[in-house]
């Protein structure tokens, strides 16, 4: 995808080619406009040529029941009592949020298996994936799925192939109510705030934008009716890359590599400066 320049690349320590910058894009999902029709799911599988196995009904509208290696987006349905005696039916389109600071990319050890384009899209380059599942530990949103067939990780690509040629993602194109929109991150942020304001005026006091700062903001944002309680629709309140992953990749990885090198070099220095311990064969000394 040469027309989308790489900004960050997994398993790589040198900077990615980044002389050209292109505007950041974002997909905005307006929860209040979503009717749960699943057209976005169909569009996703059509454009990406994915056919999930036919599953079983688990008693709720969610179908399939969870994200899978071949179902990259999914409507999740929530029946919640937001206030006493006030039942609400909330629907959220789940999928990768395309974090500005992607935990999956940070955790991935395979060079170039996960890339972040300068427009903000985080993409899995499956041919470089080695199937270790570290991306799963890195993701604060439980998005990547490892295929049982080929042991590679899969998730929403934000239709990077469409975006590269100036098209909106398939789900955006198909959404019949206009609940999903796509544009520059800046425009989408302004529009999201406007929509959240309108919702608050109409009585949704908790309405707001979900663009969590803990992961540097996301390139898939939500307008939520209860942005003060995102956990109602299965989103973490203040997501960030786990401290364990930061400790592992940010601290232990560089320090330990240096320590191991230093240990080997210290041995060599000791040998040339102090020298070996030799016992003469005729040594009479008895300890």
């Amino acid at each position: 995808m040469q027309s989308l320049d790489v900004k960050a690349r997994s398993g790589s320590t040198a900077p990615a080619p980044g002389v050209r910058t292109i505007p950041e894009v974002a997909k905005l999902i307006d929860e209040s406009k979503c009717i749960g029709c699943k057209a976005c799911q169909v569009a996703c599988m059509n454009w990406n040529d994915l056919r999930d196995e036919v599953g079983t009904n688990i008693g709720v509208y969610d179908n399939p029941a969870d994200l899978t290696p071949s179902s990259w987006t999914l409507m999740r349905f929530f029946e919640v009592e937001t206030e006493k005696d006030k039942l609400e039916w909330l629907i959220r389109k789940d999928g990768c949020l395309h974090c500005a600071d992607p935990g999956c990319l940070k955790a991935c050890p395979a060079p170039g298996a996960i890339v972040k384009y300068s427009n903000g899209i985080v993409d899995f380059v499956s041919e470089n994936c080695i199937g270790c599942g570290y991306c799963v530990t890195g993701c604060p949103f439980n998005v990547p799925r490892i295929s049982k067939a080929d042991n590679k990780a899969y998730k929403c690509s934000l239709c990077s192939d469409r975006v590269a040629v100036g098209q909106a993602p398939a789900c955006v194109k198909t959404c019949p109510t206009g609940a999903i929109s796509f544009g520059s991150k800046e425009d989408m942020s302004i529009y999201a705030e406007k929509r959240a304001g309108e919702l608050r005026e109409r009585g949704h006091k908790g309405a707001g934008v979900y663009d969590p700062k803990g992961v540097g903001g996301t390139h898939v944002m939500y307008v939520l009716k209860h942005a003060d309680r995102p956990e109602l629709v299965g989103l973490p309140k203040d997501p960030s890359v786990s401290t364990m992953v930061t400790l592992w990749k940010g601290v232990i990885k560089p320090i330990a590599t240096a320590l191991m090198g230093a240990a080997a070099f210290a041995g060599f220095l000791h040998y040339v400066m102090v020298g070996p311990k030799e016992v003469k064969e005729d040594e009479k000394e008895d300890a």
């Binding site: 530990t137 364990m244 992953v245 330990a256 080997a264 041995g267 070996p276 311990k277």
Partner: peptide, 30 residues
């Protein structure tokens, strides 16, 4: 799993440094 990954990394590094010392000791002590 996240915790295990950290434990695995730390104990592997401790073991590798230990083995570097172990191997060096064998070279050092003729």
């Amino acid at each position: 799993v996240r915790f295990a990954v950290v434990v695995h990394a730390v104990s592997a590094v401790a073991l590798i440094i230990g083995i570097i010392v172990h191997v060096y000791a064998a070279i050092w002590v003729k």
